[in-house]
Design a protein around this nucleic acid. Sequence first.
DNA 1: GTTTTCTATTGACAAATTGCCAATAGTGGG
DNA 2: CCCACTATTGGCAATTTGTCAATAGAAAAC
Lengths: 130, 130
Amino acid sequence: MEGRGPRWRWRGCSRRAVRFLEPALLLLLHHGPAHGYTLLEQLESFGLGGFDPTVVYRALREMEEEGWVVSAWDREQTQGPPRRVYRLTPLGDEVLRFWVQDLEETRRMVDHFLQRYYQHIEEHPIQEER
Amino acid sequence: MEGRGPRWRWRGCSRRAVRFLEPALLLLLHHGPAHGYTLLEQLESFGLGGFDPTVVYRALREMEEEGWVVSAWDREQTQGPPRRVYRLTPLGDEVLRFWVQDLEETRRMVDHFLQRYYQHIEEHPIQEER
DNA sequence: GTTTTCTATTGACAAATTGCCAATAGTGGG
DNA sequence: CCCACTATTGGCAATTTGTCAATAGAAAAC
């Protein structure tokens, strides 16, 4: 199953994760403000472990540029350097709802695909040569 | 909701489509050989309409490089220039099964996310200010 | 008390992906 | 012959993604 091409043809897997990153962060922030490092860890509860921190921080900064979240420095209560605490904005809340709609739609599509696959396999157990 | 950034921040939508392209093509080809133009049209039945043809042709060429499909020229039965007919290989069949697994996993993740969202919303109808 | 380790975040860049537009080309109708 | 429709390819700019190195404070180890 290895291709000679780029090292990491097996897309769809880690890529799916990236696609989930934004909504997952928005949902986590819907619970209350948090800083990147914590969010990074909490992502595992979505089955989104193993992210390079850079990716998460970058996503957060981009979300701030969009106005979905705002951040403030927290120089106290830290076991390290000052850290940025992110908080969801009303716009971010709205975007989360958009994402939910989008994921509902995604779910419909995935369902439809899988149904079609299983139905076809059942009807044609052996692949036709035609 | 407009950003000042690039024209098409609203990712996730056409992007989701792209993510579906490969498995959809593999499934369509599982029904039997077909050429790109037909596949392009059949994609609509997956809710994947409106693709730029280039994208589909490119995907097919890449899939051929990977050995998931093979193509042959069809100079007869054509209402235009000769066309390439793609056929699924056993490897492609295997890849389709991988994709199905992957989409099962995706479905679990989406379900989990949505469940968590609705549960949280129900428990905290008003966003906390904390 | 300074070296190491863990927490936390940022910057920069190469590689890959995606959108899009122009080009090519055969066929059939007017 | 010119136009519309069927089919496919090439190339490039813009965007996205992965990764690695850099910075930096605090706490623990030596």
